[in-house]
């Protein structure tokens, strides 16, 4: 009896060992999955719960009360959200397109430079190294209508009515886009430079021997090869641009009126300034959802490009 029991036990252990060995790849992922669940899923779950609740500090304690879909009703009446969403999309489109084009052009030009290439790379990286708060403060001074250097130069050049920049509702968002382009083009430049420098230049040489012009070489050979790099770079930049906060906060505060209000800044105001944590959580979730759509679209585009190469 005892021998049979031991045999059974030994067989069970062997089966368990075999099961563990065969599925080791899944067990190896378990710590990472648990780590992600704790650090990502739990906070997102809490945010979701908060978006269906009101949270208030009463007698020193945080009290949650379930409000169902009440915050969706608030959202439907909120006059700021449509403006903030529209401005965010305009900001993302304008900044990512301009920075993408400039970043690619600079990458191509710098890759062709032989002398002082290190100098150009360093110079173009400088804006990326400066803290956004310092950049915004610097540009705020430069944009100042009365004392800013930009208008001083324009007046010297003969302008009688220099632009109001951040004080003009039609120019406020554009003023922030200019600062963003100055700041973030170097990010795209760096990624694209890495892509350009890893291109098989012998293909270009062969095309030139066959009589292709320089523009044709870049358009027909290098640009298709660079597409995956460009897509990844633009995806990263889109995600970052969607979360723009510091520049708007410091340069315009979202104004005049709501002319430069963006969704991240509005979430901050609702959540931290107004203390409406439940509604703020809903806005944060909506922002995350919209960004997810962008990420999925880029991923689809990336896989499509890879398939068609």
């Amino acid at each position: 009896m005892a021998t049979t029991a031991l045999r059974r036990s030994g067989t069970g252990q062997r089966r368990l060992g075999t099961f563990l060995d065969q599925n080791f790849k899944y067990w190896a992922l378990l710590p990472t999955l648990l780590f992600m669940a704790v650090l990502t899923l739990y906070p997102v779950g809490q945010l979701l719960r908060l978006s269906l609740s009101d949270a208030q500090f009463i007698k020193g304690k945080l009290v949650w009360s379930y409000v169902g879909l009440d915050h969706f009703t608030t959202l439907s009446h909120d006059p700021v959200v449509p403006d903030a969403l529209r401005n965010t999309l305009v900001f993302v489109a304008a900044s990512v397109i301009i920075e993408g084009v400039l970043g690619l052009l600079l990458a191509v030009l710098v890759s062709r430079v032989r002398r002082f290439a290190w100098f150009y790379r360093s110079v173009f990286m400088i804006p990326l190294l400066i803290p956004p708060i310092a950049i915004s403060a610097m540009w705020r001074l430069m944009y100042d209508y009365n004392y800013g250097i930009i208008n001083q130069i324009l007046i010297e050049l003969g302008a009688t009515r220099p632009p109001l920049w951040t004080a003009d509702p039609d120019l406020a968002l554009a003023s922030v886009v200019i600062v963003d382009v100055w700041h973030w083009t170097s990010f795209l430049f760096l990624i694209m430079l890495a892509g350009v420098e890893s291109l098989p230049h012998e293909l270009g040489e062969a095309a030139r021997v066959d009589g292709a012009s320089e523009i044709q070489v870049y358009r027909r050979i290098f640009l298709p090869l660079l597409r995956p790099t460009i897509i990844v770079a633009l995806m990263l930049r889109t995600i970052l641009a969607f979360k723009v906060f510091d520049q708007i906060f410091l340069l315009t505060g979202g104004g005049p009126g709501t002319s430069s209000e963006v969704i991240s800044l509005y979430v901050y105001k609702v959540f931290f300034v107004q203390g409406r944590m439940g509604y703020g959580a809903l806005l944060a979730l909506i922002t995350a959802l919209i960004m997810s759509v962008f990420v999925v679209a880029y991923q689809w585009l990336n896989s499509y490009v890879n398939k068609t190469r």
Binding site: N146, L164, T166, A167, T252
Partner: peptide
């Protein structure tokens, strides 16, 4: 001033 749309405390003080 012409930039009245963007006058904060600091701007008025200046």
């Amino acid at each position: 001033p012409a930039n009245i749309n963007a006058m904060g405390q600091a701007e008025n003080l200046a």
